[in-house]
């Protein structure tokens, strides 16, 4: 356990340093003068130009600029957004809860449906049920989710009028951000139940869209992992003992089939928690993904630069935690280390 922890720890920092270098090189690699690009639409006098250049530190040697940037990042200073004039870190934390809410809902949806689907598929292998479920999973796996989102909006929002098209909660309610998590903050407000309902209502379609590909992946993984385990000797023993098939699969096989399923969920978790770029953009969800795309469109370089590092850091932390849980639940790995 400690050995693995140490290994991960030593791999963590070089990677993060590499990511910061990648993020830093951004402004310098972009063709043209970044200051001109940023001033572009806003226009500017030579004085404004010089001031901006100095404020971005672009008049200093490049190595010095990088070291200085690393120094700032280490003290939690990720720069200031050109568009909003607010610290990048503050902007990140403002949007993070919305993304976590959406990401977790999507993953819960995917796991709640994906595991049972895979289980049924494996239990009824080579039956029409299996073919239908796995056909559906392949369809979900191949889905261009930006289109899928539009189709669902077309059906549920436009035709049936059941769900709202965009946003996180109805504009009628002004929710004070206590924790930033809508479903927690709603309890501090007056119309708590109404706000909670409205939030849930807004969450439905985006979570479904975001969960579609993970659902397909989890279902496929559950099936293949279960089929693998069902070939083992101890399963034959369990069957020979006269246990019924349901008992064999649910209590004996599933437990041992879980490791690859947990792994695949862990791999997707980092991505989902740092902003589903397409889903958030389509549903105007006020999270990290949309923030990042908007910053790219506005060429808000400090946000792009800081955003990359913060997103990478979050993903790496989530992966690290998943790895540790993985070692912890897998006795084989635990004993080896």
């Amino acid at each position: 356990m400690i050995k693995i922890l140490r290994q991960r720890f030593f791999a963590f920092f070089p990677t993060l340093l590499g990511v910061s270098l990648l993020a830093f090189s951004l402004i310098r690699l972009a063709p043209g003068d970044p200051v001109m690009l940023m001033l572009g639409e806003r226009g500017g006098t030579p004085e404004v130009y010089e001031k901006m250049r100095t404020s971005l530190g672009l008049d200093q040697p490049i190595l010095w600029q990088y070291l200085k940037y690393i120094g700032q990042v280490l003290t939690g200073d990720f720069g200031t957004s050109i568009v909003s004039q607010r610290p990048v870190l503050e902007e990140f934390f403002d949007r993070f809860p919305a993304t976590v809410e959406l990401g977790l809902s999507g993953m819960i949806f995917a796991i709640l449906l994906g595991v049972p689907f895979g289980l049924i598929s494996a239990a009824k292998r080579k039956s029409p049920v299996d073919y239908t479920l796995m056909g559906g999973a392949l369809l979900g796996y191949s889905m261009p989710i930006f289109w899928w989102a539009l189709v669902l909006i077309m059906f549920f929002s436009v035709n049936l009028g059941w769900t709202p098209v965009s946003g996180r909660v109805s504009v009628m309610y002004d929710v004070e951000a206590v924790t930033g998590f809508l479903f927690i903050d709603s309890w501090f407000s007056e119309d708590s139940w109404e706000i909670f309902k409205s939030g849930l209502h807004h969450l439905l379609l985006p979570a479904l869209v975001l969960g579609t590909i993970p659902l397909a992946v989890v279902a496929r993984m559950t099936r293949s992992s279960l089929l693998e385990v069902l070939r083992e000797d101890y399963i034959r023993t369990a069957r020979a003992k006269g246990l019924n098939e349901k008992r064999v699969i649910v209590t004996h096989a599933l437990k041992n089939a879980l490791i690859p399923i947990v792994t695949v969920i862990g791999l997707m978790l980092g991505t989902v928690l740092t902003g589903a770029i397409l889903t958030e953009t389509i549903f105007s969800w006020p999270g990290i993904g949309r923030w990042f795309v908007a910053s790219v469109e506005a060429r808000d370089y400090p946000v792009i630069q800081g955003g990359i590092i913060l997103i990478a850091l979050t993903i790496m932390l989530v992966n690290l935690i998943v790895d540790l849980i993985y070692v912890w639940v897998n006795p084989l790995l635990r004993e080896h280390s």
Partner: peptide, 22 residues
């Protein structure tokens, strides 16, 4: 190590970043 860096970012985000440069 280069692979690690590329893998620390979600694929579509990385593509967007590269497009932002180019």
């Amino acid at each position: 190590r280069g692979v690690d860096i590329l893998m620390a970012l979600p694929s579509i985000l990385l593509a967007i970043v590269i497009v932002a440069i180019l």
